[in-house]
Nucleic acid binder design. Structure first.
Length: 315
DNA sequence: AAACTGTTCAACCGCAGAGGT
DNA sequence: GACCTCTGCGGTTGAACAGTT
């Protein structure tokens, strides 16, 4: 069977919008609104465009008060904090940045912010490092199996650490939030915290679960664990999140490792001196906030265990 | 100057969920 | 409850542009 197409693709124009099309769409919506029906809208205006395309064009480009380009460091911080906390939920992130669209933020993250964070590498180097990473990962049998089977219940026997979603300042540990011994950007921090509180639901014990660890990759530094926080997002999915069950922590972890676990490039976000390059163990609070990353009795960094948000309160 | 490579970003695609019947 | 339509979202693509060789 299959799903009926949203429009007749043969008779619909694709590709970049002409100024005339923009003008038509803009003036119509400004005068009449969308009428609550994007599908019918192009016919009303006489545009040979798909309704979805009209909606996208309006939301991402024609809508009033849209900002393009020129992301400030403040915005970078907000995006980073939220990405670390909630992942690629661009619409939610965009809602915290007036004038920004989800598409804009997504593009910005994928093309610039990632590089700004992880440093610039050639694709060849990235491939080599990824291959090396995978080789090392697969040579660590036990952990590998656990990672593959998605042992989200922490049945490895490693102790779980509980992190209270609401009692902590989620983004607090982000180094940039502290500068010269005193806290800055409290308003932004607070607003993000409120958002995360909302996302985490009303329950006072709602917490984030980060159940897995990937074995240490630091050659010659067996005592350093690199927590790869593959997160059980079942609760998030229940709350409307779609897509991967892996939060960006894993990606961050791998990227950190691929870049020799040096985080010099974070300096621009967090105001660190260049001589203060950090290793994962120092930066892990970014992903697993303060008391989620505690050393176990075995000297291993087990994993962050944070109980799931009872109720996301989304939409 | 030409060819090649990398980057950016607007736009498309398909899926999932909401809401109506 | 089943089905259908529409909307919104996130991932991906590809054209245009910029930079490099």
């Amino acid at each position: 069977m299959g799903r009926a197409p949203c429009c007749d693709k043969a008779s619909v124009k694709k590709g970049p919008w002409s100024p005339e099309e923009d003008a038509k769409l803009k003036s119509y919506i400004e005068q009449n609104g969308t009428g609550g029906n994007w599908i019918a809208l192009p016919q009303k205006i006489g545009l040979k465009r798909c309704g979805k395309s009209c909606r996208l064009r309006w939301l991402n480009y024609l809508r009033p008060n849209i900002k393009h380009g020129g992301f400030s460091e403040e915005e970078d911080r907000i995006i980073l904090s939220l990405y670390i906390s909630i992942g690629s939920r661009w619409s939610i992130i965009a809602a915290q940045l007036p004038g920004r669209t989800d598409n804009d933020i997504k593009n910005y993250w994928n093309t610039r912010l990632k590089k700004k964070l992880f440093g610039k590498q050639s694709r060849k180097d990235q491939r080599q490092q990824q291959q090396q990473f995978m080789r090392q990962a697969t040579s660590s049998d036990g952990m590998k199996q656990e990672a593959e089977t998605g042992d989200v219940n922490g049945s490895s026997g490693l102790p779980a650490i509980n992190y209270n979603w609401h009692q902590q300042t989620i983004v607090g540990p982000v180094p940039g939030m502290m500068m010269e011994g005193h806290r800055i950007r409290d308003e932004v921090d607070e607003s993000i915290r409120k958002l995360l509180y909302k996302l985490g639901g009303p329950g006072p014990f709602a917490t984030l679960q980060v159940p897995q660890c990937v074995p240490p990759m630091c050659e010659g530094s067996p005592s350093i664990m690199l927590p790869s926080c593959t997160v059980d997002t079942t609760s998030l999915n229940e709350g409307g999140m779609q897509g991967s069950s892996t939060l960006p922590a894993l990606e961050l972890d791998q990227s950190f490792h691929f870049n020799q676990v040096k985080l010099d490039s974070l300096d621009c976000f967090f105001g660190m001196g260049t001589d203060q390059s950090m290793r994962w163990s120092e930066v892990s609070p970014l992903v697993c906030p303060n008391n989620t990353v505690a050393s176990s009795s075995q000297g291993l960094q087990p994993y962050c265990h944070v109980d799931e948000p009872a109720n996301l309160g989304m939409k």
